[in-house]
């Protein structure tokens, strides 16, 4: 699509962001469409009360969630991120949630290595028919993050442009990719 901007909007737009809710925790929950998001819908339809800190992001499968998404969400405003998918062995695409488990574990090690509490990134599994498990997961995440101090971000200038959140991400990706991917490419070429 064209990234055309309305001049009218530009002049009137306020800087947006989580600074409006200073003091409140902000948690992003990546939920798979088949199980976790369905469980969330079901608990909501039962009017189950939930802590307001957790905001849902729909993904087709937790296998879609990459470390990039988790790290960027934390870098760009979230105090915690959670990935909620199907029960292990019941992924609708076979093994996407196993991929997600591995990636969450990877991000936890990454956070730990830079002095950030690894529990800011968590994985949960549940079936579509287990709304209480979703509720428990959200409450658990809210409790854990609430007990932690706000996430300190030393460098907040990762993105000047609120409209294109993907740019720094892409840059990060390219940096990350440089070594192993090239090595892999070289191996293939040799083979």
């Amino acid at each position: 699509m064209t990234a055309e901007r309305s001049n009218h909007d530009r002049t009137t737009a306020e800087p947006s962001g989580s600074t409006h809710v200073t003091g409140d925790r902000s948690i992003v929950a990546f939920c798979c469409r088949e199980c976790a998001y369905a469980a969330a819908d079901a608990s909501a339809n039962a009017r189950t009360s939930l802590p307001p800190s957790v905001r849902l992001v729909l993904v087709p499968c937790t296998g879609r969630v990459s470390p990039l998404h988790l790290v960027t969400a934390l870098a760009e405003g979230a105090d915690g991120v959670m990935v909620a998918g199907c029960l292990l062995g019941q992924c609708h695409y076979r093994e996407g949630n196993f991929n997600a488990v591995d990636r969450v574990a990877f991000v936890q090690r990454l956070l730990e290595s830079v002095g950030v509490e690894p529990e800011r990134c968590r994985m949960f599994t549940m079936s579509a028919g287990e709304p209480p498990k979703f509720v428990a997961a959200v409450k658990e995440m809210d409790r854990v993050i609430g007990a932690l101090p706000p996430l300190q971000r030393h460098d907040t200038s990762m993105s000047e442009d609120a409209g294109d959140a993907a740019e720094p991400a892409k840059a990060a990706v390219r940096t990350r990719a440089a070594t192993p991917a090239k090595a892999a490419a070289a191996t293939r070429g040799a083979a």
Binding site: S16, G17, S18, S26, V28, F30, V57, V59, P60, R64, V65, S66, L68, H69, T72, A73, A75, E76, G77, A78, V81, S159, A162, D164, A165, A166, A169, K170, V173, R174, A177
Partner: peptide, 20 residues
């Protein structure tokens, strides 16, 4: 990032997941 999922590209997911 060469391979992207239509409707759930990195840009789309990140735009929703990060609020800046």
């Amino acid at each position: 990032g060469a391979i992207q999922l239509g409707g759930f590209s990195d840009a789309e997911v990140l735009a929703e997941a990060t609020l800046r």
